[in-house]
């Protein structure tokens, strides 16, 4: 590999490493459990390394988009598996559970459980905006949806989550 290519690869790796903690948090928000989130994160990094990045996205935003798209693909694949083999699906569907200690307190477990019951697209917007601090325009760009859709999904997600958490007080 040429020196220039080495430098480009090193720079890409550095940007990925810098974004990893945020993308992992996003992956955990989407997946709802540590094991699936780790798999999702690994697939995200693999794809980020192997695919060309859109010119309008920096590496971090590109990773968020890849992560979300992979998760949607994973869910579709999982649903197919679950329909074909319900007994296997029972294991696949574990939420948090054994990973509670890793994720933190019981409160965190409840929140993650409530979060996991939101539709995937609402969850993605909620974590991007409320946790990662994306502006609506940025979230729309990453998720490739109109800003109006960001607003509606976000408000529905917040309303549902706040009511569920209120009910569990």
């Amino acid at each position: 590999m040429s020196r220039k290519a080495d430098r480009q690869t090193a720079a890409l790796h550095a940007e990925i490493i810098e974004a990893l903690p945020r993308v992992r948090r996003f992956a955990r928000g989407l997946a709802g459990n540590v094991a699936d989130a780790d798999d999702l994160l690994q697939a995200t990094v693999e794809r980020t390394l192997s695919r060309a990045r859109p010119a309008n996205l920096d590496v971090a935003r590109w990773m968020f988009r890849v992560c979300r798209n992979l998760w949607i693909d994973e869910i579709r694949a999982r649903n197919v598996r679950r329909d074909a083999a319900p007994r296997v699906a029972a294991e696949d569907e574990q939420i948090i559970g054994d990973d509670a200690a890793v994720l933190g307190t019981l409160g965190a477990e409840e929140v993650m459980s409530d979060l996991s019951e939101l539709p995937d697209e609402q969850r993605a917007v909620l974590v991007l905006v409320a946790v990662e601090g994306f502006a609506y325009r940025e979230a729309a760009e990453v998720l490739e949806i109109p800003i109006g859709t960001v607003m509606s999904r976000l408000s529905r997600a917040r309303a549902t989550l706040s009511e569920r958490l209120r009910g569990s007080d």
Partner: peptide
């Protein structure tokens, strides 16, 4: 309540 939900969510995801 919405703000509280945001805070709880951030805390839960930050736990790891």
């Amino acid at each position: 309540r919405m703000r509280s939900a945001d805070g709880a969510l951030r805390a839960a995801l930050d736990a790891g």
